[in-house]
Nucleic acid binder design. Structure first.
Length: 762
DNA sequence: GAGTCGCCGTTTTTT
DNA sequence: ACGGCGACTC
C-alpha cells in the first residue's frame, strides 16, 4: 500500500489534485500528456451534457480515465461524487486499474461499476419501497427459467408449444423497455403462450416479489420506479453524483437510459462515450436510438468526435469505413490514421468450410514461420458453431488455439448446485435454491414428498424451507423421507449457525457443506468422464470464496460478476465470435464465413429487416477494425448447415467493401450462385483437398500425411489432447483411442486429435 | 428412480 | 449432425 491517499481522510477534500508530479496551476497537468487535441477536449469538457463519439481504436478509455483524474483535480470532489457506468465487469475493472495508475493511488470509494452492480447497490438501500427486503436474491437464468416453467405448468400451458426460453425473453424485452405488466393490455403479448403472456408476466413478477428476488432486468427497473415515485430519494443521489460518465452508450437499453436521465436531470453533467457504428446488441434490447438522439435528449450537448485511430493501418480503416458508410442510422465519423496504408485486406473464396479452415490454417502457419506470434492472431466468426471446423483442423495440425466463450465458471451445473446450498444457508426463503438442491444428491424424495411440500407451502403461504420444517413435526410424510428431511433441515440449521458465528471461517464452512451434504461424494462416485473436472471446479469455488469477507459478499459477487478466471492467453490462436471480440484487438484477424445468410445472418434479417441488416453491417465493421496490421476475409461456395450441404453466395458486405483497399486472392467466377453443381469438386475435397480454383497444391498434400500418421499409438502411450489435456491410452480401436485423461476422465478421441505427450512426468 | 428413445431446434451474450 | 430434454419403460 502506498501512503499516498489522494481522497482519504488526511487530506482536504477540496485539495486540487494535479496528477503524478503535478505542477503549478499555470502549466497543464501531467495527465493530459500524450492526448491529441480531440481527446483532450473531451477530457476537459467537464460541465453539461457531452457526447463523445469514439470510433474504434481512438483511445476512449484513455479519455474517460483522464477525465476522471481531471474531475478530481480541478473540482472540489470526492471520488464518490462521480458515477462511472460500464457494461461489463471487465471494462469496470480496466477503468479502475487505469484511473488508479493515472492518479498514482487506489481507486477506492468510487461509484464505478456496471449498470447492474450500481443499481443493485442502490436497490439494497431502498428495497422496501418496491416490496423487497435489503437482502433480496438476484436470480440467474436457470432460476428464471424454472420459475417460468412452474408458472406454465400451473397455468396448464404446453411448454413444448411455448418454450419457456421464448416466453422469458419476451418478459426481458418488456423489462428492457421499462414496460411493467400493468402497462400492457392482454393483446400486447401477441400469440405467444396462447395469447396469455401478459398475464404470465404479471404472475412472474408477483412470484419474484414473493420470493424476495430480482432478475437482472428488475435491478434497473426497480431503481427507476423508486426514483420516479420518491423525488426525495432521487434528490439525494442528485446531491451525491455531481458528474456522471457512461461507457459504451450505444449499448444502453430504454431502462438504462431512463435511469441515467433521472440521475442526471438535476445537474446535467452527463458525459456519454460510445460509437453508434459498434452497436451490435439490438437483439437483446439495446437501443441505438439512445446515442443517435442524445443531442435532442440533452439540448446544448457538446459533441466531440474522436477520429484519429491508433490501432489499424490505412487499408484496414479504409475498408471498414467504406463498408459502414452504407448505414443510414449513424451520426458519422471518419477514422484516419497517421500510420501508413499497410497491407491490403485480403479476400479469398474457398470451396467449403473444410477448405476454409485448411486455408486459414496454412496461412497461420506461414505467418508463424515469418515470426508472427499465434497470440497475435484471431479468427472471428459470426456464429459459435463455425469454430468447430477450425478446431478440427487445428487439432490435426497441432496448432494451439483457444476458444473464447461457452459456459462460464459460474454457469456450470456443479457450481450452481453448490451456490444453491449457500443461498439456502444465507437466505432460507430462497425457494428456487432450495428446490434445486433438496434432492441433489438423491435423497429419495419422490413426487409424493415434493407434492406434500409444495402443497403445504402454498396453503400456508410460507417458503418451502419453512414448510419442510413444519412437515417434519407432523406425520404427513412417510417415516423414511421424514427422517431424511429432518436430517437435512438439521444440517442447514447447523451450517447457518456456523455461518453467523464465523466458526472456522466461511471457506471452511463451504467445504464442510459440500462434504456433509453428500454433494462432493456424489461427484466422487460418479463414473462419468466429467466428474473429476467438476470436483476440480468445486475446489476452485472454495478457494474463490476465500477472497471474500463473508458468504453474503461472495454471493453478491457471483450473481453480478459472472465471469470466472480468464484462461491464460499464451501463444495460441484465438477463436471467438464477433460479438465477444468487441473491444479487443489483434495484429492479424481472420474473418471467415462471409456468405449471405450466415453473415449477414438470414435469421436476424427475417426478424428485424433493414435495421438488422445495419446491425450486421456494424458487426462486420467491428470485425475488421479489430485488426492492427492485417485482415483476411473468406467466403465459401457451400457450407454444411444442420448436416446438409447448402449452396452459398458471397456476403453482400464483400461487394460493399471498397475495392482499392482489398486484394482478391482468387474468386472463382462461375462457382457462385450456381445450381449446386460443383462437378467433381466434392470428391476433390475428400481426396487431395484441392480443386481447380485453389492454389497451393503442394501444401494441400500435408492434409493427408497428418491424418495417415495418426494410428501410431499403442496402449500405455502418454498423449496430449488440445481440449482434454494429458492422458494415457487405454485401448486403440482403429483410428479411435480410448484415453484416460488426467483431468477430463475417460474418453474416446480420434487419434488425429492427440499427439504424443512430450512429458517429463511419466 | 434410472436408463433409453425420439423429437425438436439449432445467431449473437452480459449482468 | 448433434445435443438436450421430456416422456416412457423397467
Amino acid at each position: 500500500m502506498s501512503d499516498f491517499d489522494p481522497f482519504g481522510l488526511d487530506q482536504e477534500p477540496g485539495a486540487p489534485f494535479a496528477g503524478r508530479g503535478g505542477s503549478a496551476a499555470s502549466s497543464p497537468p501531467n495527465y493530459f500528456q500524450g492526448l491529441n487535441d480531440r481527446q483532450r477536449e473531451a477530457a476537459e469538457a467537464l460541465d453539461g451534457p457531452v457526447l463523445v463519439l469514439a470510433g474504434a481504436g481512438t483511445g476512449k478509455t484513455r479519455v474517460l480515465t483522464t477525465r476522471m483524474a481531471h474531475l478530481l483535480a480541478s473540482r472540489r470532489l470526492s471520488p464518490y461524487n462521480i458515477l462511472t457506468v460500464t457494461f461489463t465487469n471487465k471494462a469496470a475493472r480496466e477503468m479502475r486499474d487505469r484511473v488508479a495508475a493515472l492518479i498514482g493511488g487506489d481507486a477506492e470509494g468510487w461509484w464505478m461499476g456496471t449498470f447492474h452492480s450500481l443499481a443493485a447497490r442502490i436497490l439494497r438501500r431502498h428495497a422496501e419501497l418496491v416490496g423487497l427486503t435489503g437482502n433480496f436474491t438476484i436470480l440467474d437464468t436457470d432460476d428464471q427459467l424454472r420459475l417460468v416453467k412452474q408458472i406454465l405448468e400451473a397455468e396448464r400451458i404446453d411448454a413444448k408449444k411455448w418454450p419457456p426460453r421464448q416466453i422469458l425473453s419476451q418478459f426481458e424485452r418488456w423489462k428492457d423497455r421499462a414496460v411493467l405488466p400493468h402497462k400492457l393490455s392482454p393483446k400486447d403479448g401477441g400469440k405467444i403462450a396462447e395469447g396469455r403472456s401478459v398475464a404470465l408476466y404479471a404472475q412472474y413478477q408477483e412470484r419474484l416479489t414473493s420470493l424476495n428476488a430480482c432478475d437482472f432486468g428488475d435491478l434497473l427497473l426497480h431503481n427507476v420506479t423508486i426514483f420516479q415515485k420518491h423525488p426525495d430519494i432521487l434528490a439525494e443521489y442528485h446531491q451525491r453524483f455531481c458528474y456522471i460518465l457512461v461507457d459504451e452508450y450505444q449499448d444502453t437499453n430504454v431502462v438504462q437510459y431512463l435511469w441515467l436521465r433521472l440521475l442526471a436531470q438535476a445537474r446535467r453533467n452527463l458525459c456519454v462515450v460510445g460509437d453508434e457504428d459498434q452497436s451490435i446488441y439490438g437483439w437483446r434490447g439495446a437501443e441505438i436510438g439512445n446515442i443517435l438522439r442524445f443531442e435532442q435528449d440533452f439540448p446544448g450537448a457538446r459533441v466531440i468526435r474522436l477520429e484519429e485511430n491508433y490501432r489499424s493501418t490505412g487499408h484496414i480503416l479504409g475498408a471498414a469505413s467504406g463498408l459502414i458508410a452504407r448505414n443510414q442510422s449513424r451520426l458519422g465519423k471518419t477514422l484516419w490514421t497517421a500510420a501508413g496504408n499497410g497491407e491490403l485486406v485480403r479476400v479469398r473464396a474457398l470451396l467449403d468450410g473444410i477448405e476454409e479452415a485448411q486455408w486459414i490454417g496454412e496461412e497461420i502457419e506461414t505467418l508463424q514461420r515469418r515470426g508472427e506470434s499465434l497470440g497475435a492472431m484471431a479468427i472471428l466468426v459470426r456464429a459459435g458453431s463455425q469454430t468447430r471446423e477450425f478446431e478440427e483442423r487445428f487439432l490435426t495440425l497441432g496448432l494451439p488455439y483457444r476458444v473464447v466463450g461457452g459456459l462460464r465458471f459460474y454457469e456450470r451445473q456443479e457450481i450452481r448446485d453448490a451456490l444453491a446450498y449457500l443461498r439456502v444457508i444465507v437466505q432460507p426463503a430462497d425457494d428456487l435454491a432450495f428446490e434445486r438442491i433438496i434432492n441433489v444428491p438423491k435423497r429419495g424424495f419422490g413426487p409424493a414428498v415434493m407434492q406434500t411440500l409444495y402443497q403445504t407451502a402454498r396453503a400456508l403461504r410460507i417458503p418451502l424451507h419453512e414448510a419442510a420444517l413444519r412437515l417434519i413435526e407432523t406425520d404427513e410424510l412417510k417415516p423414511k423421507p421424514r427422517q431424511t428431511l429432518r436430517g437435512l433441515m438439521a444440517d442447514f440449521a447447523r451450517w447457518r449457525a456456523d455461518a453467523w458465528q464465523g466458526e472456522g471461517g466461511h471457506t471452511d464452512l463451504v467445504r464442510r457443506v459440500l462434504d456433509e451434504s453428500g454433494y462432493s461424494r456424489m461427484w466422487l462416485e460418479d463414473k462419468s468422464p466429467e466428474a473429476p473436472g467438476r470436483l476440480e471446479n468445486l475446489k476452485e469455488l472454495v478457494s474463490a470464496i476465500a477472497e471474500f469477507e463473508s458468504l453474503q459478499g461472495f454471493l453478491e459477487h457471483v450473481s453480478l460478476v459472472m465471469d470466472g478466471v480468464e484462461a491464460a492467453a499464451g501463444a495460441m490462436v484465438t477463436l471467438m465470435t464477433l460479438h465477444s471480440a468487441k473491444g479487443l484487438e489483434f495484429d492479424i484477424v481472420f474473418l471467415p464465413g462471409w456468405e449471405d445468410g450466415l453473415f449477414p445472418s438470414l435469421r436476424a434479417m427475417d426478424e428485424n429487416g433493414a435495421a438488422a441488416l445495419e446491425e450486421e453491417r456494424r458487426l462486420a465493421y467491428v470485425g475488421i477494425t479489430r485488426a492492427r496490421r492485417q485482415a483476411y476475409i473468406t467466403c465459401v461456395a457451400r457450407r454444411r448447415i444442420y448436416g446438409n450441404w447448402v449452396d452459398a453466395i458471397p456476403s453482400r458486405f464483400l461487394s460493399e467493401l471498397p475495392a482499392d483497399h482489398l486484394s482478391y486472392d482468387h474468386i472463382p467466377p462461375k462457382a457462385w450462385g450456381g445450381g449446386g453443381r460443383y462437378g467433381g469438386q466434392s470428391e476433390t475435397v475428400a481426396g487431395s483437398g484441392r480443386n481447380g480454383w485453389g492454389r497451393g497444391v503442394a501444401v494441400g498434400a500435408k492434409v493427408v500425411d497428418v491424418s495417415r500418421r495418426s494410428c501410431s499409438f499403442v496402449e500405455g502411450n502418454r498423449v496430449f489432447h488440445q481440449k482434454f489435456g494429458g492422458g494415457s491410452v487405454v485401448a486403440v480401436d482403429g483410428d479411435k483411442l480410448d484415453v484416460m485423461f488426467d483431468q477430463a476422465g475417460r474418453r474416446m478421441v480420434m487419434a488425429s486429435f492427440v499427439r504424443l505427450e512430450n512429458s517429463l512426468l511419466n
